[in-house]
Design a protein around this nucleic acid. Sequence first.
DNA 1: TCGTACGTACAGTTTTTACCGTACAAACTT
DNA 2: AAGTTTGTACGGTAAAAACTGTACGTACGA
Lengths: 183, 183
Amino acid sequence: MEHLESEETEGRQKLHDTRHNFISSIAQNMDLYGLSETNGRLYGTILFSDKPMTLDDMSQALEMSKTSMSTGVRSLTEAGMLSRVWEKGVRKDLYQTDDDWYKSFTSIFVNRWRESTDKNKNAAVKAKSELEFLFQITGKGSLREEIQKDLEILDQAVRYYSWLNEVINLFENGGIFDIIPKK
Amino acid sequence: MEHLESEETEGRQKLHDTRHNFISSIAQNMDLYGLSETNGRLYGTILFSDKPMTLDDMSQALEMSKTSMSTGVRSLTEAGMLSRVWEKGVRKDLYQTDDDWYKSFTSIFVNRWRESTDKNKNAAVKAKSELEFLFQITGKGSLREEIQKDLEILDQAVRYYSWLNEVINLFENGGIFDIIPKK
DNA sequence: TCGTACGTACAGTTTTTACCGTACAAACTT
DNA sequence: AAGTTTGTACGGTAAAAACTGTACGTACGA
């Protein structure tokens, strides 16, 4: 019996270690999604939790302050990686991960890229129109040529961002799954 | 004549400002590609330069130390955003941007995502095999159930990363352009 | 071969970010 | 309504990153 118990705790330790290693891996690569490694570890911890977690649970699990958990949870929630869940009789806020990775990771990807692409495209369009005006009122000369050259670059930029925008749409509306089906 | 000269410098100033604004925009969003804002500004500056730039040129343009330019240029070069170019009679190293944005940005995207996806997938596969072994030698009980549950999560992870891997391939081999043509 | 110019390694400094503890506001319990 | 409990804003601190100047190795030109 004694022996079995030790096997049990040993196995539990192994399970914990394995989890920990995997969580470390995804946490280290979470910067691709705009999340810090710590928040990645937080996400991983909640992902493997068998039940929704409170801030105190997280604080204990990661041995970090509750304040940090609070801000981390906010980031993850805003990114759409986490959602708050209700349980009657429980006063504390409970959080859990969405178990559809396609949805979670696609949405965070789309949000980030959409925002930056829009900004850049707008900046390019604005710059272009400014230079087009400047081009009009500039007499022949080296300046005029420089403007011309900048306009070509900006034109390319706008086209690139338009393309990128469509790529993002493909992910947002799920069209990507027609091309590369979920596994 | 005096008047025309002032118009010329005024126009040049306007051109400079417009450039600067656009460069700021793309620099601020360069973190999506794993580059710092400063390096983004560096990229933008070289992009709009009419000729290849030396480290001293960059240092002067950004009012930053040559050392920083050196490290920045290295990052950008490694990322495939910049290439060194030769010019006879010029001792200094010359750098210029590749003018194909599709190529530049796709390659940097692919490299980053490929690396992290591989790592995560390997970590998931490793964890899975460890837990499968653990599952074998574990008698019925709560631990066994937990392992089971983790295995399901890992299974989903592996499938997700496989899918993501194919998505990355789509960008790497240019298949994406069949679906969403360049503009 | 010597001298000069270029790029970068390295160490020190500044700036930014991450994290924590305290304190307080909101919400729940009794 | 008073007393708890919970989450977060805020200010301070520790850790990390960005940036700089110096100093040195390397390569080119005389």
